[in-house]
Simulated scan of single mutants.
Amino acid sequence: MPELPDLQAFSVNLQKRLHKKKVKDVNLVLSKKSNATEAALKKALDKQPLTEVFRDGKELSFRFGKDTILRLHMMLRGKLYVVDKDEEPKYTILEVIFDDDTKLVLTDFQKAATITLNPEPSEVPDAMSDEVDAAFLKAVLGKKKTNIKNILLDQHNLKGIGNAYADEILWDAKISPFSIGNKIPDAAIKRLAKSIKSVLKHAEKQILKKEPDIISGEVRDFLDIHNSKKSHSPTGGKIISTTINSRVTYYTEEQELFE
C-alpha cells in the first residue's frame, strides 16, 4: 500500500502533469465505492480546471476550480495512470478526461479503492502537520495502554503513517514497537515527534530521487529497517522480524522498551 511519502511524491508529479487542465468528461466504471453517482461527478467537475493536487493522510485530493474536491483512496492495490485517450488500463474504476484528451485513471483489481466527492473535513491531524508535535503526542500517548506501533498506525490518532514507516520512525526514535503508549517518557516522545517529520521528509526526497516521475507504486529499497534485504541497521543492530496484529514488523534491540 502506498504510504505518506509515496502519496506526497505522487501529488507533486500529478500537480505538474495536470495543473490547469479542464475536465471534459468523467466515466465512473465502478460506482459502489463512490459516494457520488457518475451524473453527480460529471455535473460537479464539468469544465472545471484542476487547480491543486494535495495529500491528506493516506488519500490524494484533487481540487477543481475553487472549492470542488475529488478525494481518492487507493487502498492496498489501487494505482493511478495519466494516459492518452485511446489507452485503457486494466481494472479501471474511474476516468477523468481532460480537454486535451489525456485521462487520469484510477484502477484496482481488488475493487477496493474509494472515490469521495467533497469529503467532510477531518479533525484528525496529518502526521506532517505542525499540530503533530511533542505536546500533541504526549496527550495522545498518555491515554493509551496499547503498544506504540499500533497507536501510530491508528488513523484516528494521526493520519498518514503506515506499516513500513512506523518501523522506520520507531527505529530512528530508538523506541521499541512493543512500548506501551502511556509508559513512554517525555524525552522519548520528543525524539518520536522529531523522527516522524524527519523520516517522512527524507523518504519523500529519496522516492523522487529514485523515481522522479512516479505517480503509482512504492519505492522501498532505501529503507533502513523495514527491509527484508537488510540484516543489520545502519548502526549495526541485528534486524529482527516479527508480527504485530498480523503486520510484519522490523526492529532491533537498539530500541528501548518502555512498559
Rank of each mutant, 00 (worst) to 15 (best):
K190A: 14
D167V: 05
S176F: 01
K174H: 13
I151T: 13
K79I: 08
K103G: 06
D167E: 06
S122A: 09
I97M: 04
L104H: 12
S122F: 06
T116S: 02
E87F: 13
T114F: 01
Q110Y: 15
V83H: 03
L106V: 04
I97Q: 03
F109E: 14
A127I: 02
N147L: 05
K149A: 11
D86W: 00
E88F: 09
Q155C: 02
L153N: 05
N182S: 14
A135L: 12
T114P: 04
A164L: 13
A139I: 02
A188K: 14
K144G: 11
N147K: 09
K138A: 15
L192V: 05
D172W: 02
D167T: 05
A173H: 03
I151G: 10
P89N: 00
R191F: 01
D167F: 07
I189C: 07
K90S: 13
K85N: 15
K111D: 00
D167S: 09
I184E: 01
S179G: 06
K149I: 10
I93K: 13
S176Y: 03
V82M: 02
E88A: 13
A139M: 08
P125G: 00
I115Q: 11
F109Q: 15
T92Y: 00
L80E: 05
Y165G: 02
V96I: 14
K144Q: 14
P125N: 01
L117S: 05
T107S: 08
K143Q: 12
H156V: 11
L94V: 07
G142R: 02
K144M: 12
A193S: 10
I180M: 05
I189Q: 04
Y165D: 01
I180W: 06
I93S: 13
I148R: 06
E123T: 15
L137D: 00
L94F: 02
K138L: 15
Q110P: 10
N157W: 06
P185L: 07
G162I: 04
I180D: 09
H156F: 13
F109W: 14
S179D: 03
I184P: 04
P119T: 10
A139T: 12
I180E: 08
M128V: 03
D100P: 08
F178C: 10
T146C: 05
K145G: 11
L192H: 02
N182P: 13
D84L: 04
A164C: 11
E123P: 13
E168M: 01
K144L: 09
I148Q: 05
K111T: 01
I151Q: 11
I93H: 14
K85P: 06
P121A: 09
E123A: 15
A134D: 13
N182I: 13
P177E: 07
